[in-house]
Each structure stands twice: as C-alpha cells, then as structure tokens.
Design a protein around this nucleic acid. Sequence first.
DNA 1: AGTACATTTGTCCTTTTAAGGACAAGAACA
DNA 2: TGTTCTTGTCCTTAAAAGGACAAATGTACT
Lengths: 93, 93
Amino acid sequence: MLGEKLKELRESNGLVQRQVAAALGVDTAYVSKMENNDKPVSRAKLKSLAKFYHVTEKTLLPYWLAEKVLTVVHNEDCATDALKIVLTEIDKK
Amino acid sequence: MLGEKLKELRESNGLVQRQVAAALGVDTAYVSKMENNDKPVSRAKLKSLAKFYHVTEKTLLPYWLAEKVLTVVHNEDCATDALKIVLTEIDKK
DNA sequence: AGTACATTTGTCCTTTTAAGGACAAGAACA
DNA sequence: TGTTCTTGTCCTTAAAAGGACAAATGTACT
C-alpha cells in the first residue's frame, strides 16, 4: 500500500534504491523493507521521501496512515465492522 | 466507543466498578480508565469482561478493534481517506 | 558460466515508547 | 460522611522503532 507507492515513485523517477538510501542516510536494506512494508516508515522519513520524489507529503499521507491502520486490524476477521464503526464515529464529530 | 459499551454493560448488570475490579484483579482506577478509554484494554481482559458481563467476546471485539484504530488515526485530517483505502484493500482479498 | 549491480531476507543490537498496573488524592454524589 | 468514580503521577516490564551488517537471491550483460 505505502510501499507500493514508494516503489512506483522511485521507479518513475528513474532512481535506484541506493540513491534513495543515500538521501535518507540509511542502507539499501532499509529502503527495500520500507518498499515491502516490512519496516514502518516514520513521519520524518515520509517527509524526506516526498521531497525527494517531488510530491507533496499530503499525497502520501493517506497511504501512510492506511498502512498503520492495516497493521492494527491485520488478521482480525471483524476488521470491516471495526472500520465502519470508526468511520461513523469520526463524522459524528 | 469500547469504554462506553463496557460501562453500559456494567450498569445494566447492576454492578459497581469495585466488583469488576475484583473480578479482573486490578484496582478501580484501572476500571475507570478502561471505561473512559484512557487505558487500552488487553485482549485477555476483554475476554474476562465478556464472560463477567455474560456476553460473547465476539460482540465486543469490533468495538475493541475500532478503539485501537481510532487511536491510530486520531487527529489526522485524512483519517477518512485512509480508512476507505484500507476498506478497499481488505476486500480485494 | 561469470561478474557486477540491485534487491531482498534474516539476524542482531540499542533506544524509545507503550502496556500494565499500583497508589494517592481529588470530585461527585447519595 | 461514606462510597463510588475519576485523575494524575509513578514504576517496571514488554514491545516496537530505527538501524547496521552479512548473506542470499535476482537480473542483465558479455
């Protein structure tokens, strides 16, 4: 979800993981894991990535949040119910 | 959300927090916080509570999960977008 | 087949943050 | 006043984040 986006962005900019890694100050393994949703992406890194790929952070944010939500509901069979409850709760306010 | 449910259940069973606290082996402050969503409710405690209130864990689970999701998206203005992304992602599978 | 580069996977370590819970003391209320 | 409920602070333990490194795998080229 977020990882896929990041990979798309990188490739559409004709970049290789090594370059992204350098820009973030981490190694390529780290980048790989972010792109495969194996490591969480911190808000700070999200910002750097957005800048590096020339998109606004705001574009990425929904996917970033979605990823976090997914890890919470992951493997719960009432996930859909729960999400709907949250949705109604949110626009009550 | 979950807290409200727990409080409703307790009151509809004519119980006071002290009794619930005893059943769970914690103090009343803890119970109060759970009912006010100030402390997370562990899965184990959810189970105990369900039994104690004579409802199935399955009834409570969606609210329990929803609460967790809420703490994740809490204060993010793209929360709704994120939730919708997760919903479509889930029933893709 | 062999090398060169890219990506992925797995393990490890350290630091930060969250859970779980006790206690004391302050409100509400009957 | 006594009981219930709430709030705040503190402590300890358990996870999760952040990240390095090595080794494996993939891919493309000649």
